[in-house]
Design a protein around this nucleic acid. Sequence first.
DNA 1: CTGTATCCTCTCTGATACTG
DNA 2: CAGTATCAGAGAGGATACAG
Lengths: 129, 129
Amino acid sequence: MAPGRGDLIPDELIADVFDRACHSREILEHVTARWGVLALAALSEQPFRFNALRRKIDGVSEKMLAQTLQALERDGFVHREARPTIPPHVEYTLTPMGRELAGRLVALIEHVESLVPEVEQARTRYDRG
Amino acid sequence: MAPGRGDLIPDELIADVFDRACHSREILEHVTARWGVLALAALSEQPFRFNALRRKIDGVSEKMLAQTLQALERDGFVHREARPTIPPHVEYTLTPMGRELAGRLVALIEHVESLVPEVEQARTRYDRG
DNA sequence: CTGTATCCTCTCTGATACTG
DNA sequence: CAGTATCAGAGAGGATACAG
């Protein structure tokens, strides 16, 4: 995170919104990352197996999907249920914490989405001026 | 955004959450970016001049702050008021749209922040298993 | 089927130095 | 004061091949 902070400054001195944001930065990066957002949104609809999720999230590579799911599982937002069959059968679901977060995230995205026309106008103005 | 989409597929066919998220992806990246979050949070407290903001957001480089502010200004979230004096006096404020968005963003960050302990436990469990 | 491992490219980021 | 220009390192992301 912030170079030279967090590691060096005692917790008692860390108090304002910037340092708090710094603490949650890594989590926020996982959930707002390109594929993190889409994985959470997909799983908030229904559970998915790996390749089904990969087809649902069009354009994601195996590597990035695996990486994304591992990060979200490690953070406790996604639950991975592997049945030791042959061939392997793995199902991904959201944990309660993951569902709560995904809901808020989707709400933010929908708000941003509603802003798209206004943002496009602003960009046009900016690029002209 | 998603390679091979957006540019190639007519708008009428783009409808689900993934494509919508794709549309707002660039905006979301600006506002959830490391320095984007902090700039919006700082400006939601009060207006700032460039170097004051740089001191407030400890650890940001001139280059990244300039880049961040330009992106947010172009998107219409930040207003830049330059008084043509010598030396230059430039003040950054949030637009109404920026204030609304910053509020929601801060709410999300605070929720994520409240999850930090639970996430840390989840990580410990994951790393042990 | 569900991933890992490897390689390679490209962007993001920060330090440094310079301009109006 | 408020930036821009340039450079180099680190990491994100993707294509491909392979493993259990």
